[in-house]
């Protein structure tokens, strides 16, 4: 793997990147390398200080970047914690296929957790509404998985530029014994000194990508040749137009009565659950095209995520309860 990356850096250098910028005088790290160095510092700090850390792996682009940073932080050793995927069972099939093949390829220890009880009772966003569905299949499931695993720290790929309430979150985000976030009473976080001390039952969510932006993530994926779910790349897909959303269709049974599918060139800007994540019309089938497209966007990345919009401050409410 390391050699493949070196190859990529040489390619980047050949493309006129001043020897990847890293050792050019005066000595200064380029922007992505600076972010990378900070994230690696955070990952190492948490692994050194917590008894049982775990990485929340959502299969999306941010998780892919976080995973690569974990590989870098502990090289030449393997990163010393498992990955946890909270599977709502509403994820896109491409996501699950990617999860299974990629984690196997890098030899990661993967835990998949479902709230089977809620699923058996037929939990779905159509019947319950997104608030309640997320509460059962994501938040509750996550908290159960963390408790079952005895994890005292969980890495998450959330970025502060994603959403207003995330902009308020510390890199080390303290959770009480019920997994709840108290935004008015966060621990002051000065310089790069993190307070990891906990009493029994309490935990910390650690966000190594706090200072990355959506653009940084894409540039880094490009620079580092990081594998991502093919849904991020545009191609013609079978979809149905449902309200303002473009919803990918996997079989005719996905259609509601009266709906008709059509083929549209589209892709996902961010990945979530199938019923709550829409595609965007796009021709961007390579990373440079995606990055160029991103620079022209007038609307935010989470706009296609229903859960952020069901009520003003809804992300904050979910986070208070323990959602990521």
């Amino acid at each position: 793997m390391a050699y493949a990356i070196q190859g990529a850096i040489q390619q980047a250098a050949a493309a006129g990147l001043q020897n990847a910028g890293e050792f050019a005088a005066p000595k200064r790290l380029n922007h992505l390398k600076t972010l990378e160095a900070e994230s690696i510092y955070i990952l190492r700090e948490a692994v050194a200080e917590f008894a049982r850390p775990v990485m929340l792996y959502s299969i999306g682009k941010d998780s892919s970047v976080m995973l690569r940073l974990a590989q870098k932080a502990f090289f030449p050793a393997k990163f010393p914690f498992p990955l946890l995927h909270v599977d709502t069972s509403y994820k896109f099939p491409e996501m699950i296929a990617f999860r299974d093949s990629y984690t196997r390829e890098i030899g990661a220890d993967l835990i998949v957790h479902k709230n089977q009880e809620a699923l058996d009772q037929g939990a779905n966003p159509f019947a319950l509404g997104t608030q309640k569905c997320c509460g059962l299949l994501k938040t509750k499931s996550l908290l159960d998985a963390l408790t079952e695993g005895g994890f005292d720290a969980a890495f998450g790929g959330a970025r502060r530029d994603e959403e207003k309430s995330r902009a308020k979150e510390r890199i080390y985000s303290f959770r009480d014994s019920l997994g709840q976030w108290d935004p008015k009473n966060q621990r002051p976080e000065l310089w790069n000194i993190f307070n990891s001390r906990l009493n029994k039952g309490e935990s910390i969510r650690v966000f190594p990508l706090s200072n990355w932006t959506e653009l940084d993530i894409w540039l880094y994926i490009h620079m580092e040749n990081i594998p991502i779910v093919p849904l991020y790349f545009a191609r013609e897909r079978e979809v149905v137009l449902r309200g303002a959303s473009i919803v990918p269709i996997y079989s005719q049974s996905d259609l509601l009565p009266g709906e008709k599918s059509q083929r549209i060139s589209c892709r996902m800007r961010s990945l979530g659950c199938m019923p709550c994540t829409g595609a965007i019309r796009s021709e961007a089938d390579t990373l440079p095209k995606i990055i160029r497209e991103l620079l022209g966007f007038k609307r935010s990345e989470r706009e296609n995520r229903v859960i952020d919009h069901d009520e003003e401050g809804s992300m904050e409410l979910k986070k208070r309860e323990g959602y990521f």
Binding site: Q11, A12, G21, H31, L32
Partner: peptide
Amino acid sequence: MSLHAANEQKDGFSTLLDHHLHK
């Protein structure tokens, strides 16, 4: 896994990349 960076048009894009990295 395929190398994303491979087979891309390098001219305009590498300038853009360079600009962002060294800002």
